[in-house]
Design a protein around this nucleic acid. Sequence first.
DNA 1: TCATCAATCACCATTTATGGTTAATGTTAC
DNA 2: GTAACATTAACCATAAATGGTGATTGATGA
Lengths: 222, 222
Amino acid sequence: MEMKKQDKPIRVIIADDNKNILESVQAVLNDSEDIHLVATFGSATECVANIESLKPDVVLMDIDMPAMTGIEAVKIIRKKFPGLPILMLTGFEDDDKVFNSICAGANGYLLKTTTLESLIFQIKEVYAGGAPMTPVIARKMLNAFAKMQTPQNTSEEYKLSKREKDVLELLVKGKSYKMISTQLNISYETVHSHIRRIYQKLHVNSVSEAVSKTIIQKILRH
Amino acid sequence: MEMKKQDKPIRVIIADDNKNILESVQAVLNDSEDIHLVATFGSATECVANIESLKPDVVLMDIDMPAMTGIEAVKIIRKKFPGLPILMLTGFEDDDKVFNSICAGANGYLLKTTTLESLIFQIKEVYAGGAPMTPVIARKMLNAFAKMQTPQNTSEEYKLSKREKDVLELLVKGKSYKMISTQLNISYETVHSHIRRIYQKLHVNSVSEAVSKTIIQKILRH
DNA sequence: TCATCAATCACCATTTATGGTTAATGTTAC
DNA sequence: GTAACATTAACCATAAATGGTGATTGATGA
């Protein structure tokens, strides 16, 4: 792929609580003609506070920071500047944080183990409207994406019996074993048995898992 | 990134109704030591019919083919071989087809304008568990993903503290007290304390009630 | 008719959750 | 600087849930 030279350097800011990271990034970006590191911040709070006056073209944001996390910062920035590209940085691949970042409005996701040379490339990529991410993270996203798009596993698909559906419905309403047994006029142990089988069929092992799985399925089915 | 040499060549098959594509890919892959092009097919039907006996490591699948489309083929292959990496190929970036491929279970998505040299790299990437895709396609996925998920913001009206929201979020995911304490790096008793206050604020007295109340709220305000 | 499954119930041991109380620390707001 | 609150943590007792095993009854279907 060819990368055309920038007319004006891309204005970049970075927030990271690790001083070493800030320094290395600074060193690398200073060598680049196309990219200008406008400012570095040791916290998300400072970064958010100064972003308006700095008017950067791209934001690099560490995902894990004390006080305000990078994810919260992204939410705030995204609200004020809907089009501003934000690249998340992290030291490891945490599924939840990746997804939360994405949902907060991040535009790309890089591991800190990424070579600093390729960082320049990635910044240009996200500035040009792309979404750079490591293939491993991309794969995780694909899986999650495919899972949520295909509402294959509704409570119908789990082949719960009628009685099991009755019990599950009451569980979702927050009832306890005892309340369910009273309401359905069966013994506590029968409720226990039903729930055991429900757990097997849903591949869960607690009420809360069963409840959230069930409700989420209903939502996804629309 | 370093790419270690394969012990045995990666067995690849390709389905594309364009003879020129087949020939160019064949030419390129024949030069590679690490990759062995086991077979080429002019239609998805043929490909699907022969996949079982060929036992490929990676499948390259054109997205647009007469009779059976690549997307349908992916669905069939994915059902039989859940772990088999499939790379989609197309001449243009069609949003719908990208998403449909992903939902069908494709593991990556490449434009045919991609240089043939990088194709080798991408095949190795998808074989290694990655999900190669162009940044532009990745961005489209991110946007769609963010739009449909949008978690968080569950409990504004109940005025939960930040930490309480953290705990509640994990409860909703079906985590136990113990798992939450591990994940948040706080003691079991602290989790206990947080949950006590959450219950007070939500006017509930069990995980399942809290979970369903939380999820229902999320649905209603959106 | 035999096998399968839904629905019912029971006993056991162990883990987990709930509710009450107390308290130290640190931050924020007035 | 004091009041209010967030966050952390502990102790205790009880209630509830979980997992394993086993068993009876009735319906359904190959």
